[in-house]
Nucleic acid binder design. Structure first.
Lengths: 127, 127
DNA sequence: CAGTATCCCTTCCGATACTG
DNA sequence: CAGTATCGGAAGGGATACTG
């Protein structure tokens, strides 16, 4: 565990802080996963419905940020009505296995965590 | 990529949403890494100085949350002046390799991402 | 359809002061 | 030393209305 993760004192060059800063918001990871799970480019509304509870505004800003970072590509077809398709880039796809690692960990442990937390809360109340 | 990460429509049982919810804040991961990099229990102030720019308040609340989730243990010595030592638990430690995976990805790609973003911004201005 | 623009509420978090 | 309490600014993000 002694490779990349210890020099976060240099705040501007710390990889962890970068990840947290760009992808730690409420929707980025979810959008990436959604696009990553498709092999065809996906339209704005389809992404929106797939996620279910994201607002139009937040989907727009999240997609823009991901596009700016090169994790997602955007193709706009000048038709009426407009059609815009999003896809994950190779760079974005290269991130997914790591997200998946996290998801696997969470899936395995989240029940135990929920129980631990519940105990902790009742102890707090007792004290 | 088709294992854990696709059922996030079930908002309450989605592992990704859980991770984001509990660890997506500004400090949790950084605290975990700090404690994970030590093999001896670490005092409050030492954690604080190691991270450098975390406030006392945020370190307190972050440690409490991590403790409630069972990722960090807390041992209080009733002395004067008080001494409190924190350590990562086995559960917390089991998360670190996944964080490290993310950190490795970021370390490898963050320069490219920064350049891509810079280009994107100048194109936006031009348009 | 795929956005933009605006409003506004909530949460996050830092600063500061105080305490056992 | 290791907190707790309080305040207030800033940012995140939802709801709604509008548009090419």
């Amino acid at each position: 565990m002694k490779n990349k993760i210890e020099n976060f004192h240099d705040h501007n060059n710390c990889p962890i802080r970068h990840v947290l800063d760009r992808l730690g918001d409420k929707w980025s990871i979810l959008v990436l996963i959604t696009l990553g799970s498709k092999k065809d480019p996906t339209r704005f509304n389809e992404v929106m419905h797939e996620i279910g509870d994201i607002s139009q505004k937040m989907l727009t800003v999240t997609l823009r940020t991901l596009e700016a970072d090169g994790l997602v590509s955007r193709k706009h077809y000048p038709e009426i009505p407009p059609r815009v398709e999003y896809a994950i880039t190779d760079l974005g796809a290269s991130l997914l296995p790591h997200i998946d690692g996290l998801a696997g960990w969470a899936a395995k442990n989240m029940d135990a965590i929920a129980k631990t937390r519940k105990k902790f809360v009742s102890k707090q109340k007792a004290a």
